[in-house]
Write a protein that binds this DNA or RNA. Structure first.
Lengths: 202, 202
DNA sequence: CTTTTATGAATGAAGG
DNA sequence: CCTTCATTCATAAAAG
């Protein structure tokens, strides 16, 4: 019942992009299990620490994030990869671009359906994919534009359709700070504020 | 490290030999993620508790408000300016999910207030946040459902589209509380709300 | 193999 | 409520 991602039409490249039915390997499973165990350990540590109530607030020294969490961090490369994402085939992309250019930035529910339907003949695709594509396309197109203060009078052009083959003319300099964080935000103590869920240790 | 060899039923990918097999559904993945988030929450709480008890606040550079300055692994974002957009903490999310599941999809003004109040103990939050969250949650939940009815009985007809990448599989109705039997001992800190785990992959 | 970039997807918030 | 937008996250693909 799942999304057994099959190599779409783009598996034409021998030795190249074959994407498999990858969901999670044993290895990843193991990593995951370790992560959980890791948290359990951390909790234990914290409880102990708390119990002893050492006046040494050297929790920092304990380094919650590094001591036992090592496997979690170092194995970042393993990423508990979840789902794979759709990758448009060249053909699909072409069509999408065309529609985007010609069309108005208004996908429209019904239109989406049609497009998806058509594109499905060139590879696996879903309506959501189409929807997302347009959303992203528009948003990014817009962004590029506003980030083009090179020279020339500023003109409020926005919903302007751009040339088919002129998307990424601007290298632009915005770093998405994407530091190989495997869900770091979720896995780390990112939020302070008190709490009361752990009263048991008290 | 090699664990069990995979059922070598996949001889198809030219590139590197399919070494990935499906051992976990995305739904299970979500559940797992949640669990991990739970651990993160617990640890977070413990840290706070410890911190407050020792009246030492140098544990980490955590600060109040909606500034998510986690000293441990935060990606290189120095956004000291804080976020403009609220991001639920694992704990808050947990609670919200729970309410969403159990409760009726009717937030109700008064209810919102209560919820917001409670959640505020786990991080910055406003009533509007809660309201929006429920709105979005519901709307999206709905959409997911209609997008993934039951594409199971369907036999492959054309290319191979047996199960489109139904990327949207929200675990809102996750209640399969299966336990990762393999190493239950590792999971000592079962979380009350989301005590769930992966189904054994044996 | 590791790092960087491009981009599909997720989600909080705003509009109607 | 439902749709749309903006921002962020995660990852496939590309570069080194």
């Amino acid at each position: 019942m799942e999304w057994e991602k099959q190599p779409p039409q783009q598996a034409e490249e021998p030795g190249g992009g074959g994407m498999f039915v990858k969901v999670m390997t044993d290895e990843q499973m193991e990593v995951l299990r370790k992560q959980i165990a890791c948290y359990a350990t951390i909790c234990e540590q914290l409880v102990e620490l708390h119990k002893s109530l050492t006046s040494q607030t050297d929790l920092a020294g304990v380094r919650l994030g590094n001591l036992y969490c090592d496997p979690l961090i170092t194995s970042g490369a393993h990423k508990i990869t979840g789902r794979q994402r759709w990758t448009p085939t060249p053909m699909q992309l072409q069509i999408l671009e065309r529609i985007f250019d010609q069309g108005i930035g208004t996908p429209s529910k019904q239109k989406i359906k049609e497009i998806a339907s058509e594109l499905s003949q060139h590879g696996q695709i879903s309506e959501t994919n189409v929807y997302n594509w347009f959303q992203n396309r528009r948003a990014r197109s817009k962004r590029k534009q506003q980030a083009a203060p090179s020279n020339n009078a500023e003109s409020e052009v926005e919903t302007e359709v751009e040339s088919p083959n002129d998307k990424k003319t601007k290298p632009e300099e915005f770093q998405p700070q994407n530091i190989l964080t495997s869900r770091a935000e979720d896995l780390c103590f990112q939020n302070p504020q008190t709490s009361s869920a752990i009263r048991s240790v008290d």
